[in-house]
Measured scan of single mutants.
Amino acid sequence: ASVAVIAAGTQGNIFATSALRSMRFLQILRMVRMDRRGGTWKLLGSVVYAHSKELITAWYIGFLVLIFASFLVYLAEKDANSDFSSYADSLWWGTITLTTIGYGDKTPHTWLGRVLAAGFALLGISFFALPAGILGSGFALKVQEQHRQKHFEKRRMPAANLIQAAWRLYSTDMSRAYLTATWYYYDSILPSFRELALLFEHVQRARNGGLRPLEVRRAPVPDGAPSRYPPVATCHRPGSTSFCPGESSRMGIKDRIRMGSSQRRTGPSKQHLAPPTMPTSPSSEQVGEATSPTKVQKSWSFNDRTRFRASLRLKPRTSAEDAPSEEVAEEKSYQCELTVDDIMPAVKTVIRSIRILKFLVAKRKFKETLRPYDVKDVIEQYSAGHLDMLGRIKSLQTRVDQIVGRGPGDRKAREKGDKGPSDAEVVDEISMMGRVVKVEKQVQSIEHKLDLLLGFYSRCLRSGTSASLGAVQVPLFDPDITSDYHSPVDHEDISVSAQTLSISRSVSTNMD
């Protein structure tokens, strides 16, 4: 405001104040949320940038038409019409005319000016109207692209899951042992070998009828009888010197917790746990005396209480009078009846079946994303299906024409109403129809010849004498029936064969 007042002088105070007050009108834009329509302006900018070359070309040609039209109309009207006294007036008329506004304040009066105005109007309006069409088509394409992008975003994750499931299904095939990355992934998420051994031990116990592997080994086996189970490696608790092959000598807290839970599941009659010990102070733990958990001091820290809870689970003690015997301790020893080589084939089979199920689920979810969402998608899918159906029908028609023997030239002739090819031409065609016709002709010829021969033979049998045999009239074959199959017997006289037959029969009768 200060700059405006200084620039306008003393009389500019009122002007500056009114100008600043008129800017209050811009507050109405906040009512229509114009300040939060950044996406709309961004869309407009992207459309203009995408079609910038077309817009520049249309505007450039339109500007050239405007300059030439205004100049030529000015030359034609400057002497006869006072409205075109300057080139600026003519340029104003050209702008209003070519933009199809047409105020009518300035019009050419001479015939030359009117002809020039009409010609440049028809030429220039087309170029001035091009930017509107370019922007409209650009907006339509952009909206369609955003629509497809939205659908693509919805299909991206199911497609990625389907590709991942397909690759993992491919890589978990037993015949592709060189693909090891997927197996490394499952090695990292699978439970430890100790848990798998416990699982298979329970399965084997159920197969043995509820007997433990130790009891199965204690059962008497006759001499020479084959053992029911192959000899396997035996594993004891981590306190002993022997372990399962492939295990580490260090046992983690999870393994100890699972070991304690498995020992508690063996039965309360074979294992008696004394009350857990509780320390009397955060600094020292008295293991010899058993106290109640309700006497825990409230001033303990979080670490002390955590250690106390761990001691409740991981440090059970047995009383002296209830101490288990050596046999019970041997039964409680952890027996590992299986090795990694025995378990891994079954584990890989389970993983393979899981990968198949996940692949089928991913495939079903991806197919669900291909379903249409709204009416536009339904129409688009219907149009695509219609085009596909037309293509299939056209391909089927082409194959039928190839089989029947109607080529493209014959199809055009039928469409024009011309006469089709004759039967002889159809026979000569190298097509399925021509071959079928040729075979039918040959079969008819053979059938006719057989009928003639059978009739001749029956007449010979009825006559009974050589004289009557020679008097029999043998009809000749019709050459038209034989089609294109020409037998060497067709052109010979059958009477010669009949005479030869009669001579042979007379000779045979004389010999008798």
Results as ranks from 00 to 15, higher is better:
Trp300Ser: 03
Ala233Asp: 09
Gly417Asp: 06
Ile481Val: 05
Ser508Gly: 08
Asn510His: 15
Gln381Arg: 06
Ser468Asn: 09
Leu461Pro: 05
Ser281Thr: 05
Arg371Pro: 02
Lys416Met: 10
Leu190His: 11
Ala329Val: 04
Leu312Pro: 14
Ile343Leu: 09
Pro275His: 06
Asp304Gly: 15
Cys336Gly: 12
Gly260Asp: 06
Arg399Leu: 12
Lys441Glu: 09
Gln286Arg: 01
Arg411Ser: 03
Ser284Asn: 10
Thr294Ser: 05
Arg218Gly: 08
Ile356Asn: 10
Glu326Val: 05
Asp322Gly: 01
Phe193Ser: 11
Asp255Ala: 07
Arg399Gly: 02
Glu201Lys: 06
Arg264Gln: 04
Lys365Arg: 08
Leu469Met: 14
Gln271Lys: 13
Tyr457Phe: 11
Ala219Val: 09
His448Tyr: 06
Asp418Ala: 13
Ser383Leu: 14
Tyr184Phe: 12
Arg194Ser: 08
Gly260Cys: 13
Val361Leu: 12
Ile430Ser: 14
Arg313Lys: 14
Glu215Asp: 12
Phe308Val: 15
Pro479Ala: 04
Asn510Lys: 13
Lys295Arg: 06
Glu492Gly: 06
Pro475Thr: 12
Val400Met: 11
Pro479Arg: 04
Ser240Ile: 07
Thr291Pro: 08
Asn208Lys: 14
Val427Gly: 05
Met174Lys: 09
Tyr485Asp: 08
Ser463Phe: 13
Arg355Met: 07
Val489Ala: 05
Asp255Asn: 12
Ser319Ala: 12
Ser175Asn: 08
Gly385Arg: 15
Ser240Arg: 12
Thr349Arg: 14
Val489Met: 14
Val489Leu: 09
Ser495Tyr: 05
Asn208His: 10
Tyr185Cys: 07
Tyr485Phe: 04
Leu314His: 13
Pro213Leu: 08
Leu453Pro: 02
Gln263Leu: 02
Thr369Ile: 03
Thr294Ile: 07
Asp484Asn: 11
Ala329Pro: 05
Leu314Arg: 10
Gln204His: 06
Asp484Tyr: 12
Lys376Thr: 03
Trp183Gly: 11
His272Asp: 14
Ser333Ile: 10
Ala329Glu: 12
Tyr184Asn: 09
Val221Gly: 12
Ser292Gly: 14
Arg459Ser: 13
Ser240Thr: 04
Pro222Leu: 05
Ser431Asn: 11
Ser353Pro: 10
Gly470Ser: 04
Ile343Ser: 14
Ile354Phe: 11
Pro316Thr: 10
Ser502Gly: 09
Ile503Thr: 06
Val216Met: 01
Ile354Asn: 08
Arg459Leu: 10
Lys376Asn: 10
Ser504Cys: 15
Leu454Phe: 07
Arg228Ser: 12
Gln381Leu: 00
Gly464Arg: 07
Arg435Cys: 13
Gly210Arg: 06
Gly464Cys: 07
Gln297Leu: 02
Glu492Lys: 06
Arg355Thr: 14
Thr482Ser: 10
Leu360Val: 13
Glu215Gln: 08
Ser458Thr: 13
Asp418Val: 07
Pro324Ala: 05
Ser292Arg: 08
Tyr334Phe: 08
Thr266Met: 08
Gly239Val: 10
Gly224Glu: 12
Gly417Ala: 08
Ser240Cys: 07
Ser353Ala: 13
Pro275Ser: 15
His448Pro: 07
Leu476Pro: 13
Cys244Ser: 09
Ala219Pro: 13
Thr182Ser: 06
Ser395Cys: 12
Cys235Trp: 10
Thr266Ser: 06
Ser299Cys: 12
Arg505Gly: 05
Ala206Ser: 11
Ala362Ser: 08
Leu199Ser: 06
Pro276Ser: 15
Phe477Val: 13
Lys270Gln: 04
Ser468Cys: 08
Met432Leu: 14
Phe243Cys: 14
Pro213Arg: 07
Phe366Ile: 11
Arg265Leu: 02
Ser248Asn: 05
Pro220Leu: 08
Val328Ile: 11
Pro238Leu: 14
Leu314Val: 13
Lys270Met: 12
Pro220Ala: 05
Glu415Ala: 14
Trp300Gly: 12
Asp428Asn: 15
Val221Ala: 12
Arg194Lys: 11
Pro231Ser: 07
Gly210Val: 07
Ala424Thr: 07
Met259Lys: 11
Cys336Tyr: 13
Leu338Pro: 10
Phe477Leu: 07
Ser458Ala: 09
Tyr457His: 12
Ile379Thr: 12
Asp173His: 06
Asp187His: 06
Gly455Val: 13
Asp223Val: 12
Glu337Gly: 06
Gln381Lys: 14
Asp173Gly: 00
Asp484Gly: 05
Leu360Gln: 01
Arg258Gly: 11
Ser281Phe: 05
Ala424Glu: 07
Lys419Met: 03
Gln271Leu: 11
Pro324Ser: 06
Val426Gly: 10
Arg462Pro: 05
Gly420Glu: 07
Arg256Gly: 15
Leu214Arg: 10
Glu380Gln: 14
Cys336Phe: 05
Ser504Ala: 06
Ala310Val: 14
Gln499Arg: 07
Phe302Leu: 11
Asp377Ala: 02
Glu331Ala: 06
Asp512Val: 03
Cys235Arg: 13
Ile356Ser: 08
Ala290Val: 14
Ala219Glu: 13
Asp223Tyr: 14
Asp410His: 15
Leu453Met: 15
Ser269Phe: 14
Ala471Asp: 05
Thr180Ser: 10
Glu492Ala: 14
Leu390Arg: 15
Ile503Phe: 03
Asp410Val: 05
Ser431Cys: 09
Leu476Gln: 10
Ser487Asn: 10
Val375Gly: 11
Met344Lys: 12
Val474Glu: 04
Val489Glu: 12
Tyr373His: 08
His236Arg: 13
Asn303Asp: 15
Ser192Phe: 10
Arg205Gly: 12
Asp374Ala: 02
Tyr186Asp: 11
Asn510Ile: 05
Ser262Phe: 06
Pro191Arg: 13
Pro421Ser: 13
Tyr457Asp: 08
Ile403Asn: 02
Ser301Asn: 03
Ala498Thr: 07
Pro488Thr: 03
Asp342Tyr: 05
Gly470Val: 10
Gly210Cys: 10
Arg392Leu: 02
Glu326Gly: 04
Lys315Thr: 14
Leu314Phe: 15
Arg406Gln: 06
Lys358Gln: 08
Lys270Asn: 11
Thr277Ala: 05
Tyr229Ser: 10
Val350Phe: 15
Asn208Ile: 09
Gly407Glu: 03
Phe359Leu: 12
Leu314Ile: 13
Gln397Lys: 02
Thr318Pro: 03
Ser171Cys: 09
Ser508Asn: 04
Gly252Arg: 11
Ala177Asp: 11
Gly405Arg: 07
Met278Val: 13
Val221Ile: 06
Gln297Arg: 08
Leu454Ser: 13
Leu211Gln: 12
Lys416Glu: 02
Pro268Ala: 05
Asp187Glu: 11
Arg435Ser: 13
Ile503Ser: 04
Met389Lys: 07
Val347Glu: 12
Lys412Glu: 02
Asp255Tyr: 14
Val426Leu: 11
Val400Gly: 13
Leu357Ile: 06
Gly252Asp: 04
Leu196Gln: 09
Met174Arg: 09
Ala166Thr: 13
Leu387Val: 10
Gly252Ala: 05
Ser483Phe: 04
Asp418Asn: 01
Glu368Val: 07
Glu201Ala: 10
Phe200Leu: 10
Ala206Val: 08
Val474Ala: 11
His486Leu: 11
Arg459Pro: 14
Met251Ile: 09
Gly288Asp: 12
Arg371Gly: 14
Ala323Ser: 08
Asp223Ala: 09
Val350Ala: 11
Arg256Leu: 06
Pro238Arg: 14
Gly409Val: 14
Ala219Gly: 07
Phe200Val: 07
Glu440Lys: 13
Tyr185Ser: 01
Asp490His: 10
Glu415Gly: 09
Ala165Asp: 11
Ile503Asn: 10
Asp451Ala: 11
His386Leu: 14
Ile253Met: 09
Glu327Lys: 05
Glu247Lys: 05
Asp480Glu: 08
Glu330Lys: 12
Pro345His: 01
Gln297His: 14
Val328Ala: 07
His202Pro: 10
Met511Val: 12
Val427Ala: 07
Arg250Gln: 05
Ser227Thr: 10
Lys270Glu: 15
Leu501Ile: 04
Ser269Thr: 13
Ile403Leu: 10
